[in-house]
Design a protein around this nucleic acid. Structure first.
Lengths: 166, 166
DNA sequence: TATTGTTATACTCTATAACTATA
DNA sequence: TATAGTTATAGAGTATAACAATA
């Protein structure tokens, strides 16, 4: 997951004006968005490695976890919470259904909608993968103290929680 | 850029067991990766809005900025620094060339490579867009103090700088 | 008239294979 | 034999339009 330049130029040019050997990236490195994106990419890279045995991407784990923690959640609610467009959820839900992890039941008060529920197998897999994610979170932030980790999350929330002061 | 659920269910179900109205997302919200990704998406959203007049995406600004700050940088160095695969850089470089923002010159010591340089027009546009980005960075983090902003960047770097302790 | 879930489709982003010219 | 730059292309991710059933 290293993003460092791994092929520096061997022979520097004679005068030192052309062809830089070490790249000045200070401006981008001073931006919150740049650093947040790189941190997210780094953590997600580890996530994908450890989740490969379960056939889960980040979004799959997120969907299964939200269904497990919110029995009866609708597709529209998943869509809003995870910022996934409804058409792009259809395939994921169908795949989890065919894997026997979740099931649909009629919504009690809205016949257009359907409640989503984990099956016992889905419940087990969710608990297992949640433990994996908790462990990887711990590993990914092992250079941070518990206080620093809490501070980091709090500061990140301050950045993206602008209109929704909940 | 709000990611909050904007269509809560109107009538709660009779027994309160089915069809949750408020979604429990506490597990995902406790993960650094989740929060870093949302912060990055929020900042990038504002970035795209303000850069639209210039026809720049994040990657276009990054490329032009690195060339301006590192005259003679090669395509391969851009590729490594920004984690963009070489084939995906070709079109961007060509487009900036046809916009008259950058130019290629022979590399002084390696005839396979080409040094990239900003033109005067490219230099002007880089300075202008860099000022826009600096302003948006300030706006995006206006809920943070200067100390908090520096702390945030430092903590993010601790997360993604694992092997490259530069 | 608006919303849920869905199909079909387009667009963007990212990744892989293979080629040339040079090292 | 390896690297810089390039072409062509494949795949994943994300977005829009439109529809039937229901509110």
């Amino acid at each position: 997951m290293s993003l460092a330049p791994d092929h520096p130029i061997a022979s520097p040019p004679p005068d030192g004006v052309e062809a830089p050997t070490v790249i000045d990236n200070t401006f981008l490195e001073g931006l919150v968005g740049y650093n947040a994106r790189r941190a997210a990419i780094a953590v997600i890279g580890v996530f994908l490695e450890r989740m490969a045995p379960y056939g889960f991407r980040v979004v799959d784990f997120s969907v299964l976890t939200l269904i497990a923690h919110n029995p009866g959640i609708t597709s529209r609610q998943l869509s809003s919470t995870l910022s996934i467009l409804p058409p792009n959820l259809v395939g994921m839900v169908r795949q989890m259904q065919s894997r026997g992890l979740i099931e649909k039941r009629p919504h009690p008060s809205d016949r257009r909608a359907q409640g989503l529920y984990v099956t016992p197998a889905g419940q087990r897999l969710q608990a297992e993968t949640q433990a994996v994610v908790a462990a990887l979170e711990s590993d990914a932030t092992d250079r941070l103290t518990e206080v620093e980790r809490a501070t980091l999350i709090q500061l990140l929330r301050k950045v993206y929680e602008r209109d929704e002061p909940a």
